[in-house]
Design a protein around this nucleic acid. Structure first.
Length: 255
DNA sequence: ATGGTCGCACCGCGA
């Protein structure tokens, strides 16, 4: 079972790349972030023609998440439904082949200490509570998404440049540690224990050519699922060429 | 070349 997370940075701008990538890589599950459109604008016919079902949670201009699957999707939920008013479409979940798939677009956070940063930390705590309440952690669960957090310093090429930012802050990292302590494992790490593998490069300042990258897109798996992993990699090629997303797909394969 | 972005929707914001 091949599970992928990819911040596609607009399904409209990435239309050809998205369909081409799906066709060539044939993932079992593809979690998308930053659709930047409402569900009605998602390329449903084209995706179905390639043999995929999907569930999307979108909004105009910003955010938006989706789960694509070759096999039936059930028990779809959108947002936290925790009583907190939140117009930002950042979470969709579903069951696929007995795996509870959580697809999240974690807030970027802006500057440390800003309103956006406060929102980011609050969102992460809401996610942790949602997972605690809705997931059976003795079963197969995968949290896939753009976490906007580089867990370790080795997930950042230039710590002097990014270390004080909201993607490396101790509070954000602690929130993820809480998630792992609930029973999740970063399914990617085992295959690249030395770090130095990135999933996002800033469009600005020639980030990709200089490999000024961070690993901020993750797939966290419960133990039952993580023990069945067979490989993990970043599809760096998708970051090359004309009009790439700033994020590359992160792939984890399970037996 | 000593700085170099993109997407959306509007001329700024978010990343």
């Amino acid at each position: 079972m091949k599970i992928v997370t990819w911040n596609v940075n607009s399904v409209k701008a990435r239309h050809e790349r998205l369909l081409s990538w799906l066709e060539r890589h044939q993932p079992d599950v593809l979690c998308l972030q930053e659709l930047k459109c409402v569900e009605e604008k998602f390329p449903a016919l084209e995706v179905r023609a390639l043999g995929y079902e999907f569930a999307a949670y979108g909004q105009k201009t910003y955010n938006g998440v989706a789960i694509l699957s070759r096999t039936p999707i059930s028990e779809v939920t959108r947002g936290f439904d925790d009583g907190v008013e939140d117009p930002q479409a950042r979470l969709i979940t579903a069951q696929v082949q007995g795996v509870h798939i959580i697809c999240g677009y974690f807030p970027n956070g802006g500057e440390v200490g800003s309103d956006k940063y406060i929102y980011k930390l609050a969102w992460m705590k809401r996610l942790n509570r949602w997972v605690q309440k809705h997931c059976d952690l003795t079963k197969d669960v995968a949290i896939c998404g753009d976490y906007n957090i580089a867990t370790l310093d080795s997930d950042v090429n230039r710590m002097h440049e990014w270390g004080d930012g909201s993607m490396c802050s101790p509070e954000g990292r602690e929130a993820l540690q809480e998630l792992r302590e609930m029973g999740f494992i970063d399914a990617f790490q085992k295959y690249h224990p030395e770090g130095g593998v990135y999933s996002w490069w800033d469009y600005r300042q020639l980030g990709f050519p200089k490999n000024n990258g961070l690993r901020i897109d993750h797939i966290y798996a419960t133990e039952s699922l993580a023990t069945r992993s067979t490989d993990a990699y970043v599809d760096r090629d998708e970051r090359k060429g004309k009009k790439p997303s700033d994020h590359a797909p992160v792939v984890v394969e399970f037996s």
